[in-house]
Design a protein around this nucleic acid. Structure first.
Lengths: 235, 235
DNA sequence: TCCATTAAAAGTGTCGACACTTTAGCTAAA
DNA sequence: TTTAGCTAAAGTGTCGACACTTTTAATGGA
């Protein structure tokens, strides 16, 4: 198996940066299993680079909480627990609520129009019966991603888009999340966008928090009852 | 001048980790000026190490947003703007509000007792007329730090204690913040702690958000009127 | 057979050296 | 004098090699 993808079209000017992106993608999408040890000589050989840039990339992965490193013992991909997933939902509720409020105040009219188009497209997909794909595929994250971008708060964008969203995606790839909440989620997205379009920051924040809270409770319910959503423990 | 402190008592087992801590402290406390370029050969020589571990430490500093690195151009300490300071306050309001709510639900009785003692000590200091020191010295941050720790949310702790608090301290070292809000802040702290002690998460969150909002507005007011709090632009 | 000791192998941490890029300074022409 | 081009210096990015630590395997004794 070839767990690490080829250098993506947009080439980073330095090997360490490129490898960081490659490894992050491989980890998030499951190409490198959670808990797996990453041997520096082996990985460097597989990537055709030396250990120097690889170690720099590993440091970045450690800083973004995708690998855990212990001195003299090496690095392992983090393992996913349902507790950590809930932790992330709680943080997202707080931060994306803020993002929605700021987006309502500062997002450009063009950005809002784009989002309306995106939601229209999602609505069409749901009607076409392939609606399971809505939340499952990156449609949901795409919506959230754009609102965070629209907040204009660079540090907020960094925390959510550079760190938490990759983790959230990792969970989605690991647990086979097939959401039954697509219709509700789309409706909630529309309410959020309406509030943003009317520049009602207070309402946008309230709606976003309620939306993420509903997602979290949905996950909590599944975790409590459905054993198939437990993380697989690959040998 | 010797901008970089000696290895702190608690020795990290690897050079890169230790140097990361040293450089972070030097940057936060102003030993290395904002905007200053960090030359790898020069810094490595000053620290008596080679460039390998230094580069790893720089990568970590970049991940924590304390330095900005551009390929082939080197790394510079970030510059502080009042806009970014406000960004941080907004994020803290959201996240520490969450932390206060979780702390009210999960903090140990012993932890609450310790906090009460801390506030009593702060109250005594204020009465002793050296009350300017309260917010200025790390007393304020100490209180916030413990509440975040009390939340038990590991990822929340990481975001606030590993990243944002160092930035906040950097701002405090740079702008000569002599707060006139010590008495108000202490009162607010007491209200927050009361809510936590009564396990009233909703109220604790509300009070914490209000407290941080008040701090932000205080800063905004100063930034608007007082030119002495503008960041110094060292040559 | 089982456990302790020990030697070898693998792996991480660190260093010095080299290639390529960027910058600074200098020369020369307009 | 100014500016364009060129050259040398400095700096970053990358690599291979070595030292020390951890793990594995083997050997020996009980």
């Amino acid at each position: 198996m070839d767990a690490i993808a080829e250098p993506p079209p947009e080439e980073a000017s330095t090997i360490a940066d490129r490898v960081f992106g490659q490894l992050r993608q491989a980890i998030v999408e499951g190409g490198i299993a959670p808990g797996a040890k990453i041997s520096e000589p082996e990985m460097a050989a597989r990537l055709g680079i030396s250990r120097g840039p690889l170690r720099e990339a590993m440091r970045c992965l450690e800083s973004t909480n995708l690998v855990e490193r212990r001195p003299n013992l090496g690095a392992r991909v983090i393992t996913l627990s349902s507790e950590q997933l809930i932790e992330i939902y709680l943080i997202r509720e707080a931060l994306e609520g803020l993002a929605a409020r700021l987006a309502a105040e500062r997002m450009s009219a063009a950005g809002i129009a784009d989002l309306k188009e995106l939601l229209a497209q999602h609505r069409a997909e749901i009607v076409l019966e392939c609606w399971q794909a809505y939340v499952q595929k990156e449609g949901d994250m795409d919506f959230h991603y754009r609102i965070v971008q629209g907040s204009g708060n660079q540090r907020l964008i960094g925390i959510l888009c550079d760190d938490l969203y990759h983790l959230a995606r990792m969970y989605r790839c690991k647990f086979g999340m097939v959401s039954d909440r697509a219709r509700d989620a789309l409706k909630e997205h529309e309410l959020i966008l309406d509030a943003i379009a009317e520049r009602d920051g207070e309402l946008a924040e309230l709606m976003m928090r309620r939306h993420i809270r509903a997602s979290r409770r949905n996950v909590e319910r599944r975790l409590a009852t459905d054993t198939t959503t437990q993380p697989r423990t690959d040998p």
